[in-house]
Write a protein that binds this DNA or RNA. Structure first.
Lengths: 117, 117
DNA sequence: GTTCCATATCGACGGACATGGATCTGACTG
DNA sequence: CAGTCAGATCCATGTCCGTCGATATGGAAC
């Protein structure tokens, strides 16, 4: 891979002139970048990533009491992570009596996966 | 989608007995989760996500002076974000005289894209 | 009612993060 | 050499994050 010479700024230029003309632009606008980054940020913690991994690979909804023993963290911490994933729109929950069941929202990761190619 | 009854904890149980047997496990071990989360965390900022988007869509290497005018942030802040992406193993840089050229490391996002499905 | 249980929320702590001004570094110019 | 420029680093600021103990909530069992 070599430097694209069309993008190489000219070495000599008038004082005050910017070093080069901008020729590249992001394909993702600010709003979409914000949405994509929100998902990425939610996945940017090992425990949350494993949580999503478990929920994604299991068809159906998983009881929180199943998730607690999988990680070496206190119950409030797990609850905090689940809330983060819910706030990011990746998972949702459903209560049944005492227990809460979590599941990955269908298509929640599609946009991100699509951007990632 | 309905609750998987095989996973539903029994309502009645002996005192001290856990509410249910764990039947789900993460396919991703702790180390891989850490590596995947590192990439996700680096992408968890709108500016860094747009940076990767620009660098990915442009074949070859892009001069920093091209990137600065694309965002409403100060130059040290942009440098900070580029360093984060470098530390995460997503991009690398190459100096040519006064200018620095950044590019996405080939395959840097493959593992993450593969996990995301 | 009371008691127990699963989960969520609160409050506080330490550490990490995003930001930008000032400054340093290294390279080109004259 | 001195002057200039691009980019990185340093430093200070305020904010957010991960963690967990304590507590609240709301349902089930007795």
């Amino acid at each position: 891979m070599s430097v694209d010479m069309e993008l190489a700024p000219k070495t000599k230029r008038a004082a005050g002139e910017p070093c080069c003309e901008p020729v590249v632009y992001p394909d993702v606008d600010r709003d979409r970048a914000l949405r994509l980054a929100t998902v990425a940020k939610a996945l940017g913690d090992p425990i949350r990533l494993q949580l999503v991994d478990v929920l994604r690979k299991h068809a159906g909804k998983v009881c929180v009491c199943e998730l607690v023993p999988l990680f070496d963290i206190a119950q409030p911490t797990l609850s905090h992570h689940l809330k983060k994933l819910r706030d990011a729109g990746i998972v949702d929950s459903e209560r049944q009596g005492l227990w809460a069941y979590y599941y990955v929202l269908p298509g929640a990761l599609d946009d991100f996966a699509g951007w990632l190619g």
